[in-house]
Nucleic acid binder design. Structure first.
Length: 429
RNA sequence: GGAGAGGUGGCCGAGCGGUUGAAGGCGCAGCACUGGAAAUGCUGUUUGGGAGUAAUUUCAACGAGGGUUCGAAUCCCUCCCUCUCCGCCA
């Protein structure tokens, strides 16, 4: 959520930054107008309230002093109080409606992109920052797509996923299941060693939590809802983990807080019909290890770089070729001010595919979720900055390994760092 | 699912119609005492909105939303959540 004060005080700058996401997409003019009206009303209402409070107190004092509570003097005050009450009954709903409208619009506005976020229309204008591991790109031209080799090896069964659930679900069989588990454990162990505290959070969350992180109200159709309850399947561990500290005032010396969490993630993938219909790339349910940071605003940029490095370290340990993209203003997520995507090399498609997305939300989620901190000596509170990134998406990592480590005989070499976890050197029939 | 209890400030906990943003305690901060510390004493210590350059001032908030009243943490209604016991269950 954007700061209404910032919008009020710097409307031109705010509008300019929103325009970088797309001219004409978001307008702050309506908010400015409503805000003006609301504040004018508030002044009037507050004055009436003040007098009304005075009357209430005065009656109390008079009665205690022995004035006849049924007498004229008291009655006159009561009458005035009643008059004021009528006026308040008129003004209050009006002001409340204005406030609700402002809130509603505010919740629908995306975060302001950072000054450093490259300006661009869509994903074609993302900027490649660096590449790693070119030397690991396989030279064998006959690499089978991961889903095909997975079927051949008997470790991925998409038909069974469809039977049990629906399309875009998979069942992992035997070594496939163990492989998934090995990846999860390896990634968690590595991130814990990097300083993150592991969380195993609820994977059903309430609407308030989804609103805090920004999935609601705008992106309701992207998540699975449990019909009878106010509970949703999480689209990412970012939601429960960020909400761990919702409505809390942290002490500045508790910061920074680093968490990692393995969870399944559930996405409806509405609007991507026909895209990536095969394989592990785009499923309704997938596993992911997520990194989440809560930091002091002064450090959020360096914390962001460090978080990206933590995610990259996994790819490097697995010796998977990848590149880092800095997303442009037209492609960054709703709540992000700045975002790096990590894309892993997928040999069968001869292309890089997103495997991690590392975002700095600045105070956007902190404000929506009311996550604050207090600095001793300073008065008042500040919103924490939140950051998160995948470290990494497990299914896509498995896909990348099934291809990049594929041998001419159709077996899969197990990456060295995974061997102790899987207790295998190769996967074959 | 059935029965009962309860939700108050950073925490514990009183208050059950009148100057209560809220006693008392803990915690925290400052000061005093001390060579320094502990102990002790004193003082201070919620958050958010509005107006003002500021000092300041005003409004709101005792789970949430309505209602009664001149006045509600306190009374009434609805909802949410937590806890205990019973049942069921991985």
């Amino acid at each position: 959520m954007l700061d209404i004060k910032q919008i009020r005080e710097n409307p031109t700058l705010v509008q300019e930054l929103l325009n970088r996401r797309g001219v004409g997409k978001y307008e702050i003019q309506p908010i400015l107008y409503l805000d003006q009206q609301q504040r004018e009303l508030e002044i009037i209402r507050t004055n009436i309230q003040t007098r009304s409070n005075e009357i209430g107190k005065l009656i109390g004092v008079k009665i205690r002093e022995g004035v006849d509570s049924k007498g004229e003097e008291i009655q006159a005050l009561k009458d005035e109080g009643n008059d004021l009450k009528l006026k308040l009954w008129e003004l209050e709903p009006e002001e409340k409606e204005l406030k609700n409208k402002i809130e509603e619009i505010l919740l629908g506005l995306p975060n302001l992109p950072s000054e450093t976020t490259p300006v661009g229309k869509d994903e074609r204008e993302n900027v490649e920052i660096r590449r790693w591991g070119d030397e690991y790109i396989p030279t064998n031209p006959d690499i089978l797509p991961h889903d095909e080799i997975g079927k051949k090896l008997g470790i991925l069964d998409f038909e069974k996923g469809v039977k049990v659930a629906q399309s875009r679900f998979v069942a992992l069989i035997g070594v496939g299941a163990a492989f998934e588990r090995a990846l999860i454990n390896f990634m968690l162990d590595q991130q814990i060693a990097a300083g993150y505290t592991e969380i195993m959070p609820p994977i059903l969350v309430n609407s308030t939590s989804l609103t805090a992180t920004g999935q609601l109200p705008k992106f309701a159709e992207e998540s699975f809802k449990c019909g009878d309850d106010d509970l949703w399947l999480i689209p990412t561990a970012e939601v429960p983990v960020t909400n761990l500290y919702r409505d809390e005032i942290l002490d500045s010396n508790q910061l920074p807080i680093y968490h990692c969490a393995y969870t399944p993630c559930f996405r409806r993938e509405a609007g991507s019909y026909g895209k990536d219909t095969k394989g592990l790339i785009r499923l309704h349910q997938f596993n992911k290890v997520e990194l989440v940071k809560f930091v002091h605003p002064d450090t959020s940029e360096s914390e962001h770089e460090a978080l990206v490095n933590n995610a990259e370290a996994i790819l490097q340990a697995l010796k998977l070729p990848y590149r880092v993209l800095e997303l442009c203003t037209g492609d960054i997520g709703f709540g992000a001010a700045k975002c790096y995507d990590l894309e892993v090399w997928i040999p069968s498609a001869k292309t890089y595919r997103e495997i991690s997305s590392c975002s700095n939300f600045k105070d956007f989620q902190g404000r929506r979720g009311n996550i604050r901190f207090k600095e001793s000596g300073k008065k008042g509170t500040q919103f924490v900055h939140t950051l998160n990134g995948s470290g990494l998406a497990i299914g896509r990592t498995m896909a990348a390994i099934l291809e990049n480590y594929q041998q001419p005989d159709g077996s899969i070499k197990v990456p060295e760092v995974l061997q102790p976890y899987l207790k295998k050197v190769t996967i074959s029939n």
